[in-house]
Amino acid sequence: MLKKYNFKNKSLLIFIATFLVCVLSGYSIYKNILPKVESKNISKALDEYESGNDSKINNSNIEKKRTFDESTLTNDNRGVPVLYYHSVRDSNHNEVTISPQKLKNELKYLKDQGYVTLTLSELSDYLLNNSPIPEKSIVITFDDGYMDNYQNAFPILKELDMKATIFCITSDLDGEYYLSKDAIKEMSDYGVDIQSHTVNHSELNKLSYDEQLKQLKESKKTLESITGKSVFSIAYPYGKYNKDSIKAAKAAGYSLAFTTDRGLADRDDSPLELNRIYINSNYTMATFKQILSTTKK
């Protein structure tokens, strides 16, 4: 009887010891691993809250760096021509409205001449991070964000395999006169940069600092909620801006801003006062070529 009793006690002690080990191991896992997971989730939530973007910027949408032919690269401060267009449709009534065929002719000329169209991220890396770019680099931009940019310019960009940026007004994304949200999303997913042109296309230099900051923040938030990508660049409407505009652009989270002053975007410019080259729809091809070849920093 004594031997049987001792055997039972020994079995009970082994069971209790095993149970305690399991409990302690579980507690250790809970203590060391779960808080880390929760911490990551909290950190992510805080980042999303602070960005003011309820739709969450998807890191998978971050632009992947292209690999260029090293033999064509340069890292000097020659500057980059940044062309800017507006509406793209058949019309003879407005110098800011270019026909699709004329736009295609100009973009095809650039491609045939060996120009490489940069994204704004690539331009930013060149200007701010001293990254090399192809010797014949150029940036194509469209101001205002008209629906005809989607209907007429987008197919041309796809056909010629060229990069471009559209600076959008966000007050009325109706899909009729201005771009629809679906069109913005589709172009952004394809690789067209979608950036800010403020909410109402106001002359910023006539607004208070707080009003300017609101214009810049709200347009940025709206576009980021549609594309899921970071909006880090703005084109000042009418080219109108002042010191408050630059201050507000920094505060709103922009790293690049474009004027309407003719010149090349180069490293000597303030990154929030970059030059561009206006393309008038009345230019002949000869004028287009001349402006492209003679515009300096």
Rank of each mutant, 00 (worst) to 15 (best):
Q113I: 07
Q113W: 04
G114M: 07
Y115G: 05
Y115V: 04
T117E: 01
T117D: 04
L120K: 11
S121G: 13
S121P: 02
E122P: 03
L123W: 02
S124C: 09
D125E: 15
D125N: 12
D125L: 02
Y126Q: 11
Y126R: 02
L128A: 10
L128C: 09
L128H: 05
N130Q: 13
S131Y: 08
S131F: 05
I133V: 14
I133W: 02
P134L: 10
P134Q: 07
E135K: 15
S137G: 11
S137I: 01
S137V: 02
I138R: 00
V139S: 00
V139D: 00
I140H: 00
F142R: 02
F142Y: 10
F142C: 00
D144K: 08
G145L: 05
G145Q: 10
Y146E: 08
D148A: 12
N149K: 10
N149W: 06
Q151T: 15
Q151C: 03
A153E: 09
F154L: 08
P155G: 08
I156E: 09
L157T: 11
L157Y: 08
K158Q: 15
E159G: 12
L160M: 12
D161H: 13
T165Q: 02
I166N: 02
F167D: 01
F167M: 11
F167L: 07
F167S: 03
D174K: 05
G175L: 11
G175R: 07
G175E: 07
G175T: 11
G175Q: 12
E176N: 15
E176Y: 13
Y178R: 13
S180N: 09
K181P: 01
D182M: 10
A183H: 06
K185S: 14
M187V: 11
M187F: 07
G191W: 04
D193K: 00
I194Q: 05
S196Y: 07
S196G: 10
H197Q: 12
H197I: 03
